[in-house]
Design a protein around this nucleic acid. Structure first.
Lengths: 148, 148
DNA sequence: TCATTTTAGTTAAGCACTTAACTAAATGCC
DNA sequence: GGCATTTAGTTAAGTGCTTAACTAAAATGA
């Protein structure tokens, strides 16, 4: 290594890819979060609703934690305001007293119906520098990157 | 739209790319953050040191905020422990009394020299599912995505 | 020239997450 | 059958960021 300043300025390919990933992702996430925020909503809570919906409308908190990739305490904290807003419902599990069954309400469902398409549209617009075949290439490369 | 459950399950290409980006980036960031944490360090503080070094060893906090992409108050909060650990030094600007000149100390520089190469190595290893030409393709696509 | 606006940085309050510690219920095992 | 262990969820404390409000210094402009 010649000197530290040159070392930090001349990044190797892996690092360039790393920082590009971080930056591109941050920009897209910002678009999405701003959309939800502008509607008094919150990306993390929406992901919970989507995940409940994917499961068919009911799910356990611990499963949500795995799917979303956050900790169990955080799931509790996310569910509280969702329940207060009437978007989900908690019922205790009939067989297993430790479990709580989370179900999405019809209000939760209509919130998704009303907002998800536009949110997807905003994200898609932010990606419009890439053609469809480039998006497909990118997806393949990202999925290959994940195999590790 | 047929029904909400199918809608959330069948994601369009843009959304697939979006979520792949988020996931892949999160995994790589986790590797990097764990590395710093295992050494009692912190990715955000390291980024500050690197950015000071890129500038040649001295920089203003407001410039740091722009480069790193965080708010000014956060820069203050990041600089405090760096100064307490003797990794940076604050001096008031000789001409402009509002400004504070941040300079990296020799301790700060040796910390980077000692740890940056291994950190880069860990990140590179996490990417080893991709060949060099694939990394180059990915970089090109990410840079094109950013043009927006 | 001196009052107003802008700029630089810090302090305060709040939000979204984490880890650690806890409660309660179910399971396992002799 | 009853004690120890595991599992599910919540509560508490702490971290790292944000926005809003503040202080002080410099620049602007009638």
């Amino acid at each position: 290594m010649k000197n530290l300043q040159e070392y930090v300025q001349e990044m190797p390919l892996h690092s360039l890819v790393f920082f590009s990933l971080v930056e591109a992702t941050a920009n897209l996430v910002e678009v999405s979060e701003k959309y939800w925020k502008s509607r008094g909503l919150n990306g993390a809570r929406i992901r919970l609703l989507v995940e409940i919906m994917k499961e068919g409308g009911t799910i356990l908190p611990s499963m949500l934690a795995k799917r979303i990739g956050v900790t169990k305490p955080n799931i509790t904290l996310l569910l509280v305001p969702l329940e207060n807003d009437g978007l989900i419902r908690r019922t205790s599990h009939p067989q297993d007293g430790r479990k709580t069954v989370i179900s999405i309400t019809s209000e939760g469902q209509s919130l998704l119906l009303k907002n998800l398409p536009e949110n997807r549209q905003r994200i898609a617009e932010k990606m419009n520098a890439l053609e469809e075949d480039e998006l497909k290439q990118l997806l393949v490369l990202l999925q290959k990157l994940q195999r590790n």
